[in-house]
Amino acid sequence: MAIIETKNLTYTYPGATKPSIVDVSIKVEKGEFVLITGPSGCGKTTLCRTFNGLVPHFYQGELKGEITVAGIDTLKHHTYEMAKHVGLVFQNPENQLFALSIEKDVAFGLENVGVPREEMRRKVDWALNQTGIYDIRERSPHEISGGQQQRVAIASVLAMEPEVIVLDEPTSFLDPLSAEKIFEVIYKLNKEQGITVILVEHRLDLTAKYSNHLIVMDHGAVRLEGDPRKILASEETRLIGVGIPKATLLYQMLKKEGLNLGDQTPLSSEELADQLLEALKPRD
């Protein structure tokens, strides 16, 4: 069964004249690593907010269509009920940490649902270890770097042991190396814990290689959905204004010139380099 399924989802913010998402029907299977991309203002963030019921419960406004997440109809259940199933990580790490120590922040959700102390300690420590911040658990949020702050934000939704983690441009404020570390953490959670990941990103250079399901949005609607290798190779994707990874782009440029590197479109520099090494290796 799909872990997230939407049918003809259309939503308009209160006071807005145009809907922010239009007729969105998507299906996400358990354990997938989904990448959502598209130009600014295409409705990616709004779609994320429907997954745990922030839209429409927190934002009000009018939501039409159907949506079930982890088997629950989010229209009929509050965000605090969804929090156990779906964790949201936002763009700005600064505004999602409100406690005075890191472990206290990680425990925030568990405290809210009333988990007993011993169990909470165990879950918090687990989440801290998974994200590699156990050693800094007693520090305060301003004593750590932006990358570490964002890992705290991930740990704090992870502690609730959700089935789905949704991350809305989690690395846009970070330097490339810290960003890469964040993506590694998310990828590990996806592979080892089987957590379904939904990642919203502009920078496909850094992220395409992790995904096995790509959704391209534009003007509130889903324009393309499916295998990232196929979608990134298509002309339509480029026309929408999606930043195709350089490795993928180079592969296509070479293909156009008649250089055959194999059928699989590469998503990362490693894949392209391997294909080139294979194709150009000295033969005797």
Binding site: L54, F58, A83, F108, N112, G114, V157
Partner: peptide, 16 residues
């Protein structure tokens, strides 16, 4: 962010 982390789920909050 608070809403997303189950703020107000129960009156019987616990503490780390």
């Amino acid at each position: 962010a608070m809403e997303s982390r189950a703020w107000g789920a129960t009156k019987k909050r616990t503490n780390l």
